[in-house]
Write a protein that binds this DNA or RNA. Structure first.
Lengths: 144, 144
DNA sequence: TTGAATGCAAAGTTTTTGCAATATA
DNA sequence: TATATTGCAAAAACTTTGCATTCAA
């Protein structure tokens, strides 16, 4: 989603459009690294030196509300954020902690079975995988 | 796993056996509510009034190390713990925040597909579902 | 007896909140 | 101009750490 569309959506939902909000969304929509609030804040330091962490958190709250980001819990102390709001699995490297997307697998058969098994009315899901990323595998291979 | 087995395992792994450690494991192995550290601490107050939260956290760390508990991130501020270390999906109620297990669905076909799609060497996974539990569904139904 | 564990308090992290100054509409 | 937002600092929530006392082996 580009800045124009985000601007329109914020206004439509009754939020004001500020440079900070656009900048935070921009960081999220231009990365696949699923940054934490701190990571977003750091990336913005250069061009928005007065940006505060509180603004990052408050903005993420709004972006979640208008469904422009999803929040991830990959098993760390902090949350991570993803501007790709499609339901898709994530995988975290247990060595370097990078978090990647996994695409191209249809989980509907599995989810349907779950739906039938539970008495909950389901509305969402998060699938996390853990392992070692290709980079860390080759680094480990070189150590001997 | 009963107290005798836990005692043996702790000793075998080089840890001392204390009433606190057994009590914490006992709470975890006798509940399906996936308590947080604070919840475990509260439950122990009556019979272990001198128990400290720090001991709960330190003990959980050990129990994780010897694979007697798994740690869950269901999207809350705090972690939750499960003495059932089998890989199985969890579901959280978005209304009352209870967390339940889901059993009886074979995820291996789905996981195998994921395995083929990612370049990661996978070693674990966590599946979280979100929705409304049966109790909260019927409560909501009564409001009108 | 001796090293490990407990429990307290202090500190560290991450996230939230209050409020005066500022910017959006 | 009026109200929402920002940014700072303080607070809150969760978890970890240091250390003297106590306990397990």
């Amino acid at each position: 989603m580009d800045a124009k569309e985000v601007t329109a959506l914020l206004r439509e939902k009754g939020f004001k459009v500020t440079p900070q909000r656009l900048a935070i969304y921009n960081v999220l929509s231009n990365t696949t690294e699923h940054p934490s609030a701190e990571m977003i804040f750091s990336k913005l330091q250069e061009f928005y030196p007065t940006m505060s962490l509180a603004t990052v958190y408050k903005t993420i709250e709004i972006l979640k509300e208008i469904e422009l980001v999803q929040i991830l819990n990959v098993g760390e102390e902090s949350f991570r954020y993803d501007a790709n709001t499609d339901t898709h699995p994530h995988v975290r490297c247990l060595v370097c902690n990078r978090v990647d997307d996994i695409y191209g697998v249809d989980e509907s058969a599995y989810v349907n079975q779950i739906s039938e098994k539970t008495a909950y009315r389901l509305s969402g899901q998060q699938f996390y995988f853990y392992g070692v990323c290709p980079e860390c595998q080759s680094k480990a291979g070189k150590m001997h």
